[in-house]
Design a protein around this nucleic acid. Structure first.
Lengths: 152, 152
DNA sequence: ATATATCCTACTATTTTACTTGGAATTGTT
DNA sequence: AACAATTCCAAGTAAAATAGTAGGATATAT
């Protein structure tokens, strides 16, 4: 039930982009460097985010990506869905049409899948990209303070 | 973030075994037939359940598997862990030692992983194999009644 | 004895993941 | 106008994980 690198790298990139919201944009090069990931691979993940309408691109020199909406209006559910195709832990509880298994009403595991899926989507839906960015800022401040005092 | 067939088949097999708790046992043949899965493959999954001490085997003719503890004392977290190795959605939030990523304290995604993992484990820990079996019995009754009335 | 089981290990095929490669199109800068 | 930095796009490939198969040894009720 592991998350793939698509989800992991993609979400981190999204938070990085969110950190610049209102002030500027980030190129794939910059994003890849921050995470130590190959540019070409990250390019593909960003393409998925763009296709889903979550980021806006500017081409050419000094181009890059920005959030297409305010960070508080983008849920992590949207982000993960864009990156991984779905948040479903099993196909038969996916929200897309035609994904309900034919044995659904006689499946002994389905109640558990539904319960799990509901909780997961609750968390993802209620967490916005702004929440993530805010947490990250606080975390970075803590780290900076910690380093300063330990050096002095 | 999909569950593999190990988790899916294995959990269903576990519920099937639980349905016989106190009355008898089931062979891999019977379990495989119920689910339409190959005997040889299911054998491997059951082996994992046995290794984890969740089921007890009886060898030889008319042998098979039973729960090694009362169904209300087996959580779905134990079952899934036995089958998939862990319930962690990302390695860095696994409960096993040495699985915390070196960048943990500067990772923008970690807070989300922790929140998700906590919810998932809550559900899995609080759902017992007895809950699953009870649900299944009710579901089967409903189906039986539904069929009878629709035929008559 | 024999049929029915678990038990065990190794092999293989398929699918998914995680990239890499190569280049076209766009745009700011000089 | 030339150039460098960038997004955009489509294919190809290597590695890993998943989902099985195959074959046989061992145990036990009848």
């Amino acid at each position: 039930m592991k998350l793939s690198t698509k989800g992991r790298y993609g979400i981190k990139a999204m938070v990085d982009i969110a950190m610049e919201y209102g002030t500027g944009r980030l190129s794939v090069n910059q994003l890849a460097e921050k995470q130590g990931v190959s540019v070409a691979y990250l390019e593909q993940l960003i393409a998925a985010l763009k296709k889903a309408g979550l980021v806006t691109s500017t081409r050419g020199a000094s181009g890059g990506y920005t959030l297409s909406r305010p960070p508080e209006e983008i849920s992590m559910r949207e982000v993960l869905t864009a990156l991984e195709g779905s948040t479903a832990i099993v196909d038969c509880v996916g929200t897309e049409m035609g994904q309900s298994c034919e044995n659904a009403c006689s499946c002994s595991a389905r109640p558990l899948w539904l319960k799990l899926q509901r909780r997961i989507d609750d968390v993802l839906q209620s967490t916005t990209i702004k929440d993530m960015a805010d947490d990250y800022r606080i975390q970075q401040e803590r780290n900076d303070n910690g380093n300063e005092t330990s050096i002095s």
